[in-house]
């Protein structure tokens, strides 16, 4: 039997990707991983063109690199570094957890329920701490040491 649908659509759409709402940390990690992944991809595509400019010889290369010496670009590059540090560290966590490791075994459901997401949370926190350290060191390198 075909029912005529007067139902109202109620999908969250893109807001469902972006708004972590009241869910756990991993839900926010997911959104950030996606944004940083796309950001790095954009940078990477430009990067291929920029670095391939070396086929026109050292002078052209220097010119291209001078262009990127502007503070805006420098800050942009640092943002990419930050995105990369996050994506890489969170990526390691996802590599482990999405392959089902580091979360123990299925258990009999006894109240209060525990779940694998909670069991892997220390991993997320450690990854974020390392990412933070990398971001700080990267910042030192970008702005203080390397001139």
């Amino acid at each position: 039997m075909k029912v005529e649908r007067l139902h109202r659509k109620n999908n969250l759409g893109l807001a469902g990707w972006i708004r972590g709402g009241r869910y756990g940390l991993e839900r926010y990690a997911y959104t950030l991983h996606r944004i940083t992944g796309l950001g790095i991809l954009l940078y990477f595509l430009l990067h291929i063109f920029a670095t391939s400019s070396r086929i026109w010889g050292p002078e052209f290369w220097e010119k291209t690199m001078d262009l990127f010496e502007k503070p805006v670009f420098k800050f942009g590059e640092y943002l990419v570094f930050v995105a990369f540090a996050y994506h890489a560290l969170n990526g390691i966590r996802l590599f482990i957890t999405e392959l089902g490791f580091g979360m123990g075994k299925p258990q009999r459901p006894v109240i209060p329920y525990k779940n694998a997401v909670r069991r892997q949370r220390p991993l997320l926190i450690v990854a974020m701490i390392i990412a933070f350290v990398l971001i700080v060191f990267g910042g030192l390198d970008f702005y203080l040491l390397g001139n």
Partner: peptide, 10 residues
Amino acid sequence: HFAGACSDVC
């Protein structure tokens, strides 16, 4: 992508 929200709300 292991956002994990499903396990939290179940």
